[in-house]
Lab assay of single mutants.
Amino acid sequence: SDEEKKVRDQAKRLGVNTEQLLKWARRQGDEDLVRIVERLLRS
């Protein structure tokens, strides 16, 4: 999905993997991002 591509691009920009991005999203309190990243991790 578009959202998932955006998440992957953001992880690349930050230089982190998906698990690290999830931690980062939780720290930001970004519920939408957390949900998308969790979906990516499960897929």
Rank of each mutant, 00 (worst) to 15 (best):
L41P: 00
E38F: 04
D30M: 13
D30N: 13
A25K: 01
L22N: 00
L22G: 00
K23D: 15
L41S: 01
L22H: 01
R39D: 07
R39F: 10
K12L: 12
E19K: 12
R39I: 08
K5S: 08
R35E: 12
R42N: 09
L40K: 00
R26K: 14
R8D: 05
E19Q: 09
S43N: 12
R13G: 03
I36A: 08
R42K: 14
K23Y: 12
G29Y: 13
R27W: 14
V37L: 15
L33R: 00
T18P: 12
R42Y: 13
D32N: 13
L22C: 06
K23C: 11
N17Q: 03
L33C: 02
L14S: 03
D9N: 07
G15L: 09
E31R: 10
Q20I: 05
V7G: 07
V34R: 02
L33E: 00
E31D: 10
G15I: 07
K23G: 04
Q10K: 09
D32E: 11
R42I: 07
E38S: 03
K5Y: 05
W24F: 02
K12M: 09
R27D: 15
L21M: 03
L41H: 01
V7I: 11
E38M: 10
K12Q: 07
T18S: 09
Q20N: 06
E38N: 03
G29M: 06
E19S: 07
D2W: 13
T18D: 05
K12D: 08
I36R: 04
S43Y: 14
D30W: 14
W24S: 01
V37A: 02
L40H: 02
N17A: 10
K23T: 08
V37T: 01
R27N: 14
D32F: 14
A25C: 10
W24D: 02
K6P: 04
D2G: 07
L14H: 05
Q28H: 14
S1L: 11
R8S: 05
A25Y: 04
W24Y: 03
L33M: 02
K23Q: 14
I36N: 02
D32M: 11
D30H: 12
V34M: 06
T18F: 15
T18V: 15
L33T: 01
L22V: 02
E31Y: 11
L14G: 02
Q28I: 13
V7R: 05
A11M: 15
R35T: 05
D9K: 06
D30P: 05
E4M: 13
Q28K: 06
A25R: 00
D2E: 11
L33S: 00
G29H: 04
E31L: 14
V37R: 00
E4P: 06
D32L: 12
G29A: 04
D2A: 09
R39G: 06
L33N: 00
R8H: 08
W24L: 03
S43A: 11
L22P: 02
Q20V: 04
G29D: 04
E19N: 08
R27Y: 07
E19A: 09
K6M: 14
S43V: 14
Q10V: 14
K23V: 13
L41R: 02
R26D: 02
R27T: 14
D30Y: 14
E19F: 11
Q20E: 13
I36E: 03
K6R: 12
Q28N: 08
R42M: 12
Q10D: 03
I36T: 03
G15W: 09
G15K: 09
E4Q: 07
K6A: 07
E38R: 03
A11H: 05
V7H: 04
K6H: 08
A25Q: 02
E38G: 02
L21D: 00
K23W: 13
D9F: 07
R13S: 05
R13A: 08
E3M: 14
R39K: 12
S43Q: 13
K23M: 13
Q20Y: 05
T18E: 07
V34G: 01
A11L: 14
E38L: 14
V37N: 00
L41K: 01
V16R: 04
L33F: 05
R35M: 05
W24H: 02
R35I: 06
E38W: 06
K5V: 07
G15S: 08
R42D: 08
V7S: 07
V34W: 06
L33H: 00
S43G: 10
A25W: 05
G15R: 11
S1G: 07
D32V: 12
R42H: 06
L14M: 09
V37Y: 01
K12A: 08
S1I: 08
R35W: 06
Q28V: 09
K6Y: 14
R35N: 08
L41M: 04
E3F: 12
E38A: 02
N17W: 14
Q10A: 14
E4G: 07
R42P: 01
D30I: 14
K12Y: 06
R26E: 13
V16M: 15
R13P: 03
A11E: 09
E4Y: 14
L22Q: 01
E3A: 13
R8V: 09
L41A: 02
W24C: 14
V7K: 03
V7N: 03
D30E: 05
K12N: 07
E3Y: 12
N17K: 07
A11D: 03
L22A: 01
Q10G: 04
R8C: 13
L14I: 03
E3K: 15
R39P: 00
R8M: 12
R35S: 06
D32W: 14
K5M: 08
E4T: 08
D9I: 05
S1T: 11
R13H: 06
R42L: 10
R27A: 15
D2I: 10
S1Y: 10
R27G: 14
A11K: 05
T18H: 13
D32A: 12
G29F: 13
R26M: 14
L40F: 12
A25G: 00
V7Q: 04
E19H: 09
G29T: 05
L21T: 00
K5D: 07
E31V: 13
K23R: 12
L33K: 00
E19L: 12
G29L: 12
I36Q: 05
V34I: 11
R35P: 00
